[in-house]
């Protein structure tokens, strides 16, 4: 690999936008694909572009054959973004695990005193009403949104906003009973059942979690499952 390629990878990564390097390993010639910047490589046509878009979507690097030439497509996706509503106790263990997975975490809670807890001192926090805050964050198909506050006043406007978005995962903490009531309220607000069903609730994979740490593991496991499905 030429040092120019290495430098370009590092500078593109700083921008935090997804891209693919298309590498001809036999000639050591590399070119790049990203959303706004198509490449000058003559072999790169519409079909090749579709292959790159698909690789980004699947988050999968691979060797491909194109026009009788072999290329290695190396996918550099943006990190998974995890938006948490509710700076409550469980958020802190969830954030710890999310950090191991290198997620970009954003914590939203209008109660500033909750956000000021030491445990949330080194992540991005937004002290606004969740729906208002969510409207200002670009939510793409690598974003997961979860509500933890237990308070319908905070959780539900966030869920409604989340259901309108491209988020790949939407989860809501609360028992089956709580969720049943939540569904009734969302239905009465005019949302249809099919859309409401996109909410994972009770949140997390059913592994019999009891402690907040165990519940956090079950939530992250479910997010991983949705991300990779």
């Amino acid at each position: 690999m030429k040092i120019n390629t290495l430098n370009k990878i590092l500078s593109l990564k700083k921008e935090n936008k997804p891209f693919v390097i298309i590498r001809d390993l036999n000639t050591n010639i590399d070119f790049f694909y990203n959303e706004n910047n198509s490449t000058e490589e003559k072999n790169f046509d519409e079909n090749f572009k579709i292959i790159c878009i698909d690789a980004l979507k699947k988050d999968k690097s691979s060797l491909i054959n194109y026009n009788n030439k072999e290329y290695f497509l190396h996918v550099y996706n943006s990190p998974v973004r995890l938006i948490i509503i509710g700076a409550v106790h469980i958020a802190s263990s969830l954030i710890k695990i999310a950090r191991i997975l290198r997620y970009e975490v954003i914590l939203i809670d209008p109660r500033e005193s909750f956000l000021n807890s030491q445990e949330f001192s080194n992540i991005k926090t937004i002290s606004k009403w969740p729906d208002e805050a969510l409207k200002k964050i670009p939510i793409d198909n690598r974003t997961a949104i979860i509500t933890l506050s237990h308070d319908p006043k905070l959780d539900e406007p966030a869920l409604i906003e989340a259901l309108r978005s491209k988020a790949f995962y939407i989860g809501a903490l609360g028992s089956k009973k709580t969720h049943k009531k939540r569904i009734e309220r969302l239905l009465s607000l005019g949302l249809n059942e099919k859309i409401i069903n996109k909410i994972c609730a009770p949140i997390g994979l059913p592994i019999g979690s009891i402690s907040t740490e165990e519940i956090s593991i079950s939530i992250i496991a479910q997010i991983t499952q949705k991300l990779r499905e």
Binding site: L6, L10, R102
Partner: peptide, 15 residues
């Protein structure tokens, strides 16, 4: 893809 981890490796290579 473990982007940040690989980024660290590539930054290290640059160094």
């Amino acid at each position: 893809m473990n982007r940040k981890e690989d980024q660290n490796i590539l930054s290290k290579a640059q160094e």
